[in-house]
């Protein structure tokens, strides 16, 4: 399940290392500056990330998978789509975990539309990371982007259900 993540990590590390070496050969001074910048921007975002991770950890252990499955696992119609979308917006899973979770829920009887809504909002809408997005952009832009993404995600979910219905 985690293999996809590892491959991604290795590729990103390789790219970073290659560029770092090229940069170092071309200019020591610039490379040093780049690394200082990298460290500063990491330090900048660390407190917020730590807070987000801890709150998510708490949330996930209070709401266990069985409860989640119960709410959206049945043929829950528009109500289930709405709940899936809200869950997807609030949750913060890495993509690989998201797909596995959706696949698991699908095999236990959830509808395609609900799972499409879940996956789609999970990737596009980030309520938990909203403070971070506001910090980098501003309040209006961040909220608007998430709002539009939420509405269009629900639309995409229904379209996926419709098209797959025709295709199968």
């Amino acid at each position: 399940m985690k293999q996809g993540n590892y491959i991604f990590n290795i590729i990103v590390y390789l790219i970073a290392i290659v560029f770092l070496i090229i940069s170092f050969i071309k200019s020591k001074q610039k490379t040093k500056k780049a690394l200082i910048k990298a460290w500063n921007s990491f330090k900048n975002i660390l407190p917020m990330l730590l807070g987000i991770i801890t709150s998510i950890g708490l949330l996930l252990s209070i709401l266990n998978p069985e409860i989640i499955k119960k709410i959206i696992g049945e043929k829950s119609g528009a109500y289930g789509v709405l709940i899936s979308s809200i869950l997807g917006s609030v949750a913060l899973f890495p993509g690989v975990v998201a797909f596995s979770t959706a696949a698991l829920l699908l095999s236990s009887g959830a509808g395609y539309v609900q799972m499409a809504a879940f996956v789609q909002t999970l990737m596009m809408v980030g309520v938990i990371t909203l403070p971070m997005e506001i910090k980098y952009f501003n309040k209006k832009i961040a909220i608007l982007r998430n709002l539009i993404s939420f509405v269009l995600s629900v639309g995409v979910a229904y379209l996926i259900g419709f098209i797959l219905g025709l295709w199968n």
Binding site: L20, T31, K33, L35, I36, A38, I53, P94
Partner: peptide, 24 residues
């Protein structure tokens, strides 16, 4: 929390290094 923190510590360093290089 510990496992996601580990994952984030693994994911972020090369990304921030690339950001620094891109900027420079």
């Amino acid at each position: 929390i510990v496992s996601s923190f580990k994952e984030i510590l693994l994911v972020l360093p090369p990304i921030f290094i690339l950001i620094g290089l891109l900027d420079e």
